[in-house]
Computed example of a mutant assay.
Amino acid sequence: MISSLIMDISGSSQADETVFNDLGWLEKEIQTWVADDGFSHVNYRMGDELFVLSSIPHNTLFIAIYAKLLWPHNDFPLKCSYHTADIKPPETNPEQWSHPAIKDTRESLENIKKLTMLDFASPDMPDEIEIPLMYATDIINGMTPLQQEVASLRLAGMLQRDIAAALDKTESTVSAHYSKSRGKQLEHIIKFLADYYETDIEVLNGHFTDSLKRRLKL
């Protein structure tokens, strides 16, 4: 099985160097997330795109969600297309791999590039997945930077009092921002998706936590 992901920066023609530097940082972080997979490949391609392969089925959907939570540029949202296919890893350079599954992933990405309501795509995505991913898109893209930090730290398992101490805020401030972030709803969406795809995301969540702490310098 191969799980693929293509992430593209929306509106990148107007982005400055900071945006592309952060995409390079994200590439290095995702490399640590998939390092222990049986097969993996992560590459920041020329321009504004990240290409990810993993041998863990459906892994790339959750990589995409966590990547968007780490992404600090809501003015330039990441558009993400993921897919899992029952195929063997490429025997040659993955960058030159032209399997139909990869082409399908890219075609799905092209279909959502101009949409504002959905940042996640997958070939033949069922309605029961498309609708929660629409909500996830709206939640993540609607967060302020502080709300995004609070929601991400809660998702990483940190207690409210510890978040307050880490961000130098009061507990009431953290509570208010978590409520406004709709982070609880996002947690439910992620759990639903993990149950739907029968995917254990505990290890990936741990990697996300480590990356989040590095980004926030905690």
Rank of each mutant, 00 (worst) to 15 (best):
D124L: 11
S181C: 10
S3Y: 03
G183M: 00
L218M: 14
P89G: 07
S175H: 01
S3V: 07
P77D: 07
P100G: 01
A15E: 00
L118A: 12
A194E: 12
V19I: 14
S10L: 06
V203E: 13
D48K: 00
M7C: 14
N59G: 06
D124G: 00
G38R: 08
K68P: 00
E187R: 09
T18G: 07
L70G: 04
Q96K: 15
L26Q: 04
K213F: 08
V52E: 10
E107T: 13
S172L: 08
I63W: 04
F62S: 02
S13M: 03
I139H: 01
P126Y: 05
H188A: 14
K103T: 14
E198R: 14
P57Q: 02
E27N: 12
G142W: 00
S108L: 07
V52S: 09
L186A: 00
D168W: 07
Y196V: 01
S55H: 10
F76S: 01
D119R: 11
S152K: 02
S12A: 10
M143E: 14
L26S: 06
L204S: 03
L50C: 08
S40R: 10
S54Q: 08
E149F: 04
W33S: 08
D162W: 00
E128Q: 11
K103Y: 09
Y135V: 12
H99S: 09
C80E: 04
L5S: 12
I131V: 14
A151H: 02
S55V: 11
E198W: 08
D124C: 03
H73P: 02
R182L: 07
E17H: 10
L53Q: 04
Y66A: 09
G157W: 11
G183A: 01
L216Q: 11
A35R: 13
E171M: 15
I6Q: 03
G142T: 04
D8C: 10
Y44V: 02
E27W: 04
P57V: 03
P145L: 14
S40Q: 13
E149M: 14
F51D: 12
D37T: 10
L26N: 08
Q185M: 11
S152N: 02
F62P: 03
T144P: 06
N74M: 07
N43E: 13
N21V: 02
Q14E: 09
Q147N: 08
Y197H: 14
H188D: 14
T144H: 09
N59W: 10
A166V: 06
A176D: 06
I163R: 08
D36R: 13
H41N: 11
F120Y: 15
F62G: 01
D168F: 13
A156E: 12
P77C: 08
W97F: 10
Y196G: 02
E110P: 00
D37A: 09
L50W: 05
N59A: 15
K114L: 11
S55M: 09
E27F: 02
A136H: 08
L186W: 01
Y44T: 05
Q160W: 00
S181L: 05
V42N: 05
E91C: 06
R182M: 10
L133Y: 03
D48V: 01
M134E: 15
D104Y: 10
S12E: 02
P126G: 05
A165Q: 13
L115E: 12
Q147D: 09
I6L: 13
P57N: 05
V203G: 05
E49Q: 09
L118T: 11
I2F: 03
H73N: 09
I65P: 00
